[in-house]
Design a protein around this nucleic acid. Structure first.
Lengths: 230, 230
DNA sequence: TACATAATACGATATTCATCTAAGTATGGA
DNA sequence: TCCATACTTAGATGAATATCGTATTATGTA
């Protein structure tokens, strides 16, 4: 028997359609109740409960109890990154309806990746920040340059505060639809929350989809000279 | 139901222990017979045949028939890269014996990754070539610099010939033990074969393990100033 | 031809495990 | 106190599939 990393340990958890659906739903980074996840995965609550217990045991998700509700979320951004990588290696879903096709297009355009922005828009923004010399790519991380420090400060991002968080600061996160990297980590999250605060983007309930508002379009254009194609 | 890439399609193939063992064995990049693979995965030939058929159907492996033997190999280096990425995301194997422990240490030191070198040695060599300014990292590729062109030519590597091959030229391949990148692709393969030709490294039958010979140790030292710790 | 080896095909078995029904626990509100 | 809701647990069921014994095909060798 050849010694090798225990591939099955990870893949067995993801190989099951219902669990995959639950995890895909949780990739929006939000908390969801067990019933919500059951509905999203098209299974009965008992079955969802069974899968959620298994995922929790394996430290893939965590649970917070409030009253009679149990709120589930991905355990951390490392799990989210892993899932995003596996997605980037997997075939695109079979599209069976016009509705699914348009949903897929929207996700490819802009979506959440756990707690930051992903999709074409995110990759464009990341590239633009690189070209402007605000960040530099170094292996799996982006590094904020001196110019970048000024830029992010001007934009109202507290780099010092973010860097104190117990997580990757500016992870180069793999984008499954664009098959390249976008800015993740604490900095990616900081920007994401700033965009929300400014009303430039909006999340939708029970979906990873992100909508760029009209303020967002002009905002991104002013900030980066970036034209949003929708 | 949330639209997302079909994770299960890929992971279901890897979730089964016997198939995982077969694929791990094939990561040495060599052809293996069905019986060999059955033995390596500790299953009967019929069972191996069943799994091999399934893997072939899904274009994970290819088969060449010679006489009464069937030789199986990974389909291409894209499959190998995918497997290596999944391995880098998976937990290290549980080590149950001194023998396994020493085998793991050897693999972490130097092993084949499909058709090129992986492990600590490979990562060190890659870093050294980067520091010497022979190659530069650009996203998922390494780029050969002008200085690098001279260097590789001196070392007897035919860059023009390699670049004509219908595959990635110098892929930045993920190393599961070192959790960083080493040089893969056609250039990685070219160097690997040159090391073999020079007698610097030796492969072992039915193992991914690579042995650095004494010529290799002095060779790598002369070429890169790199001291091999064994 | 006869026999040994490599591999696959087929059928039976066993195991794993996702799913559901039914029942039970916990919580909040009337 | 009673009921509705959210969720889990337990047990039964069924489907998928990995495995192996047996048989068959293909090839090489004596």
């Amino acid at each position: 028997m050849i010694i090798h990393p225990n591939i099955s340990a990870l893949t067995a958890l993801l190989a099951e359609k219902s669990r995959a659906a639950i995890l895909a739903a949780l990739m929006d980074g939000k908390f969801h109740t067990a019933s919500e996840l059951a509905y999203m995965a098209s299974i009965k609550p008992q079955t969802a409960s069974f899968h959620l217990a298994k995922l929790e045991e394996n430290n893939i998700i965590i649970c917070e109890k409030h009253g009679r509700f149990r709120y589930f979320r991905l355990a951390n951004d490392e799990v989210a990154n892993t899932l995003e990588i596996i997605m980037s290696l997997s075939p695109l879903p079979e599209v069976r309806s016009l509705n699914q096709s348009s949903q897929l297009k929207k996700l490819e355009h802009a979506r959440t990746c756990y707690d930051h922005l992903a999709g074409r828009v995110s990759v464009n923004l990341t590239n633009t920040m690189q070209q402007a010399g605000y960040i530099e790519r170094n292996n799996k991380e982006f590094i904020v340059t001196a110019a970048g420090e000024l830029f992010f400060k001007d934009f109202g991002i507290d780099l010092v505060g973010l860097s104190k968080k117990r997580r990757s600061f500016s992870h180069a996160c793999l984008d499954w639809s664009e098959r390249t990297h976008h800015l993740g980590g604490a900095l990616g999250n900081g920007l994401f929350e700033k965009y929300i605060e400014l009303g430039w983007i909006e999340t939708k309930a029970n979906s990873r989809e992100i909508v760029i508002t009209s303020q967002g379009k002009s905002g991104f254009k002013d900030l980066f000279g970036l034209e949003m194609q929708i």
